[in-house]
């Protein structure tokens, strides 16, 4: 099994204590792991599986079922494009394509090599009346245009 660094082991032990006290489920363990480390790493899953009676397969079954779990590290800045119906008919695809071009991302790879940006798509954020919507680092932008989105990304690149 992969070596777990000491610092990480300490955090994992804290999560395990919390989990035993709160009678959490496999989902809540995964949510905690993600909250703590930013994504679900194989090391964390294997460690938890060894220290609980939950098999690795169950953790991965859940982590791959729900869209909110990430199996890879994400970028420092998260750009989310809403793909709800209203956004779709008002040009969400164009927003996505221009963000992809600006960040040189492909369909398979949604995080930049320097781990500065991750581009995500979400089914619907429920802000349809101001479609198309993009979310940059948790701030919601309504009536987004390709131009505006590219400008915002460029501004973040300079930081």
């Amino acid at each position: 099994m992969p070596e777990v660094p000491q610092e990480m082991e300490k955090k994992l032990n804290e999560l395990l204590d919390k989990h035993i006290k709160k009678e959490g489920s496999a989902i809540s363990i995964l949510q905690d792991i993600q909250e703590e480390f930013g994504y679900i790493s194989p090391e964390a899953v294997i460690w938890f599986s060894k220290n609980t009676d939950i098999p690795e397969s169950k953790f991965y079954g859940i982590a791959t079922f729900y869209a909110q779990f990430y199996l890879n590290p994400r970028g420092k800045n998260i750009v989310t494009a809403c793909c709800g119906t209203a956004c779709h008919v008002k040009g969400a695809e164009r927003l996505i394509n221009s963000a992809k071009r600006e960040l040189s991302l492909t369909d398979e790879n949604n995080t930049t090599e320097d781990k500065e940006f991750t581009l995500e798509q979400v089914a619907c954020v429920g802000a349809c009346s101001i479609a198309p919507v993009a979310i940059i680092n948790k701030k919601v932008y309504g009536k987004m245009t390709s131009d505006k989105l590219t400008r915002e990304i460029k501004a973040l690149k300079k930081l």
């Binding site: 989902i27 859940i62 079922f65 729900y66 869209a67 089914a123």
Partner: peptide, 24 residues
């Protein structure tokens, strides 16, 4: 209980499975 991003969990029995900590 926070949903973890699965549309099918709006279906009653899937929602229940999800609250119980299973795949929805």
């Amino acid at each position: 209980k926070l949903g973890a991003g699965a549309f099918v969990c709006g279906e009653e029995t899937a929602l229940i499975a999800s609250i119980e900590g299973q795949r929805g």
